[in-house]
Amino acid sequence: MGMNVAAAGGSGDPEVLVDINTTPLIDVLLVLLIMLIITIPIQLHSVNMNMPVGTPPPPTTPPEVVRIDIDPAGTVLWNGEALADADALESRLTTVAALESPPELHVNPDKRVAYKSVATVMAAVQRKGLTKVGLIGAEQFL
Rank of each mutant, 00 (worst) to 15 (best):
H106M: 04
A98M: 07
G74E: 01
H106S: 07
S91T: 12
R112N: 13
I70P: 03
Y115L: 01
D85Q: 02
L99V: 04
L77W: 12
L83R: 08
S91H: 10
S101V: 10
L77R: 06
H106T: 01
P72M: 02
Y115P: 02
A84D: 10
N108D: 14
Y115I: 01
V76R: 09
P103N: 10
N108G: 03
P102Q: 11
A88P: 12
A84R: 11
I70G: 03
D69Q: 13
A84E: 13
P109M: 08
L99D: 15
A88S: 15
R92F: 04
T94A: 15
T94V: 08
V96M: 09
A98F: 00
D87W: 06
D110K: 06
S101G: 06
L105M: 14
P102H: 13
I70Y: 01
G80S: 05
D110C: 09
V113I: 03
L93T: 09
P72F: 03
H106C: 02
K111M: 12
G74M: 00
P102E: 13
E81N: 05
I70Q: 05
A84M: 07
P109I: 07
V96D: 05
D85L: 02
N79I: 06
A88N: 14
D69P: 04
D85W: 00
T75E: 02
T95L: 13
I70C: 03
T75R: 11
G80R: 06
W78M: 07
A82P: 11
A88M: 12
V76S: 09
A88Y: 09
Y115F: 06
K116G: 00
L99M: 15
T95R: 15
L89Y: 06
P72E: 10
D71K: 05
L105Q: 08
P103F: 12
V96P: 00
P102W: 12
S101T: 14
D71T: 08
A82F: 05
D71S: 08
Y115H: 04
T95A: 15
G74Q: 07
E90G: 07
L99Q: 15
L99I: 05
V76A: 03
P103Q: 10
V113L: 03
T94S: 14
T95E: 15
N79S: 11
R112H: 07
E81M: 06
P72V: 03
E100K: 13
E100H: 10
I70D: 00
G80N: 05
T95V: 07
N108F: 04
